[in-house]
Simulated assay, not measured.
Amino acid sequence: MKKALLPVLMLSSLINTAHAADWFKNNDALTQVHKHLLNNDLPQMFDSLVEVWQINASEYREEHLNTLFAQALNKDCGKTLTKKTLPDWISSVVIKRMMIQSPGRDTFRVEINVESSNNIKNITFEKWVDKVVSSDSEFSKDDQGGNGSSDHRYYKRYNLSTQLNPGLYRLSVKTDARDSWSTWVILGKVVTRQQVRWASKDTWLIDKKELLNPYCPLPKLDVGLFDYVDEKYDKVWGKSYESDYPKSLANEDLPNDRYVLAVSMVQSRWQGDISVEQVQTISKTYDISSEEELK
């Protein structure tokens, strides 16, 4: 029986090899993605992947593209995905995909943070082809420079009805002086490697869902208290942790009041010089009174 099985296995192997050889004789963009990935040529792989995304892909192909993109991130977390650099008037770009879970409601956002020495007029983020991700958006400027520099921080926030889909996007930045810069951005499927959840009224736990990418920064835990003033949430206290994550608030000298407690798990990767963050936030009201002190 084993002797009869061996020729069948050999024939199957030959057929598969022949199909693979025929497949690699193709010279379409998807074949180029595979070839560049196998050769560790990530910039060329990224350019070919952009070209494939520009084709109306089927659901099967989209799943395949997401798998290829995830494999590319396993090389160096996206640091060498593209050789394109930021212009000299932009010092930092951060793209945040955000999910905020509050009691009885989940909200979704995408936020673009740009630090620049020039006056930014607008930031746009569109899904291919020419589709603004949401008509509910807000553009703002923070007069405080980042990292001690004289640059200003600019924010473009899009409020979404659902999680932002994977795919090809176009990021554009324009200044008052008519300088402009744009780039392609590829977003893969949301991968929750670590997730934060409430364990009790004022404590939380971090569930480890998948192994971390060793080439990416460690997930960061942000904890903050917000006060609702003039129809706006102002942060009154906050800390970030890159290890030894706490499970509750430490003793802090804060006025007695009702706050919103927000705990965020931030997982980061790169696309060349651009930082892409996946942010999961849980929030709830939190009362501080003379009878109830922070643990």
Rank of each mutant, 00 (worst) to 15 (best):
K96H: 08
T203M: 06
A29I: 14
P255N: 08
S268N: 04
D28T: 13
F125V: 06
S264E: 06
V114I: 13
V229D: 10
W181V: 11
Q44V: 01
L65C: 08
Y228D: 15
W128C: 02
K232L: 14
V114Y: 03
K2Y: 15
N213L: 04
W181R: 11
I123N: 02
Q71I: 13
R170Y: 12
V191S: 07
E126A: 07
Q32L: 05
K84C: 00
S200H: 00
F139A: 14
N165I: 13
M98L: 12
V196D: 02
S289W: 07
N26G: 15
T17S: 15
N26E: 11
V185C: 14
V94T: 10
L205D: 14
K201E: 11
Y215Q: 13
D130K: 08
E138N: 11
I282V: 12
W270A: 10
L86N: 03
M99C: 05
A21I: 15
F125L: 09
W237G: 01
L171Q: 01
A177W: 11
C216H: 01
D130Q: 11
Q54T: 08
D257V: 09
A4H: 07
G146T: 09
V133M: 02
Q163N: 09
G188Y: 02
A29V: 14
S134W: 08
V196C: 01
L249V: 03
W181Q: 11
I100M: 13
K127R: 14
R258F: 12
G78W: 02
L37E: 04
I186W: 02
L261K: 07
T183W: 05
K284L: 11
N39H: 15
V229M: 09
N113P: 00
Q267T: 14
S48C: 02
E242V: 14
H36C: 14
